[in-house]
Design a protein around this nucleic acid. Structure first.
Length: 266
DNA sequence: TGTGATGTTGAATG
DNA sequence: GCATTCAACATCAC
């Protein structure tokens, strides 16, 4: 489900509901999403602990425990968190839940189990091991341009690569290409410096608007102006082309032909 | 009923 | 070694 803005809203939600609350009990229904720890060990490590801080980088959310260890929450495609009290509010595909001493719980919901939970003794080491790029909202223009340097892949492929830039997913990548009027399949080496700067500016603008709305993804989908144009066959602004659907960089990609110009290197 | 979906990874390929 | 592509993961909705 979530890209950078949605994970950011998860962070706000996590901070509001979970920080500084003692975990009385941990319930694990399915530890399949736990990658470096099993359910029993997870229960043992987390029971009695308290999350004291959190850190988001791209689509990764880290919860800092009072014993210095971290828990990584990566939401995959369908991950979600819910704070609730009654059994009847339990999410349908809850995989684990923290029960706090105040009687409330934080449940981790994930139908498709693409989410990943890791228990980390050294957060910095983990980030460097997986080579996670700088957060797309924090990266400087210079650093962004540096990452583009010498790269031959498509602009969409670049935006989606979490090692180069963390946080942009399939939908926002399409939105950035749409707003810059650049065909997502354009090769980076064919873009002029001005266009590269434009991509940076538009990316930050889109992400900060989405973050400031501080909504969750479901609401955003119906109320947001973003992504509404992603409808196959729809006419482009000013009638300059039609919305096409194509696999680019391995993902289903929407774009307007003609309206979004394709830049190819010779 | 088959198909594809907001993400990542590891194997395969160039 | 590096860059890129693709299948696989599991479930649901259309």
């Amino acid at each position: 489900m979530p890209e950078l803005p949605e994970v950011n809203s998860f962070k706000l939600y996590f901070d509001k509901t979970t920080l500084n609350q003692k975990i009385r009990e941990v319930e694990v229904q399915d530890d399949k999403i736990m990658r470096n720890i099993n359910g029993d060990d997870f229960i043992e490590k987390l029971t009695g602990r308290t999350f004291v801080n959190s850190y988001r980088r791209g689509k990764y959310l880290f919860g800092k425990l009072d014993d210095g260890n971290d828990v990584l929450f990566h939401f995959g495609m369908t991950g979600d968190i819910k704070y609730y009290e009654d059994d009847m509010d339990q999410p349908r595909h809850e995989r684990f839940a923290f029960h706090f001493t105040n009687g409330y719980r934080l449940g981790f919901d994930c139908p498709r189990k693409f989410a990943r939970i890791l228990y980390l003794k050294d957060l910095e080491k983990y980030i460097s091991e997986i080579g996670l790029g700088e957060d797309a909202l924090i990266i400087s223009e210079n650093s962004f341009l540096e990452k583009l340097e010498g790269r031959k892949t498509s602009i969409k492929g670049f935006l989606l690569n979490q090692k180069l830039l963390a946080g942009v997913g399939n939908l926002y990548a399409d939105e950035i290409c749409f707003q810059t009027r650049i065909h997502p399949g354009s090769s980076i080496s064919a873009l002029r410096q001005k266009q590269k700067k434009d991509i940076y500016k538009v990316m930050q603008n889109i992400l900060s608007i989405a973050v400031n709305r501080a909504r969750n993804y479901k609401e955003e989908k119906t109320e947001d102006d973003f992504f509404q144009w992603r409808v196959k066959g729809q006419k482009a602004p000013k009638g300059k082309g039609v919305c096409k659907v194509e696999k680019i960089a391995g993902r289903t990609t929407y774009y307007f032909d003609i309206y979004q110009r394709l830049y190819q290197s010779k």
